[in-house]
Amino acid sequence: MRFKLSIVTFVFGLVVTSAVGWQVSMAQEEEYILAHEDVFGNLRRPQVGFSHETHVDKLEDGGCGKCHHAPDDKTGQLGYIDGDEQPCMECHGLQKANRIPALREAYHANCTGCHRDQIKSGNLQSGPTTCGGCHRKN
């Protein structure tokens, strides 16, 4: 009896530890606050709440590259490199550099651009497209 219980406890502990470990290793939070005062200085609009989880659910497979687009070492083409998901500001700074858009422009183009495309193609439940839709004053 005790042996069976310890087996069950061990397996249970293993499962829980793996789940927590998986979450931690994926480094995803429930909702990110996109403010970037380190880049923008004083913010001119309220900070944006971004749910990574919602976007992972909506975009399903192959959608990660929509945001996590890194240039390929050889070809320079933008694409998704599994395991190399950097935050946006790693490449996008305050000002435009070479052909890399500035951080604000990159956010707007990527976020509202996608949401507007979604709405135009019929998915009316897509994300916000207005200024205050994302920059919500709470």
């Binding site: 207005t130 200024c131 205050g132 839709g133 919500r136 004053k137």
Partner: peptide, 13 residues
């Protein structure tokens, strides 16, 4: 009013 988000935002915008 839309900039300050006073009132219903989307209709105002």
């Amino acid at each position: 009013l839309a900039y300050h988000q006073w009132g219903p935002y989307r209709p105002m915008l």
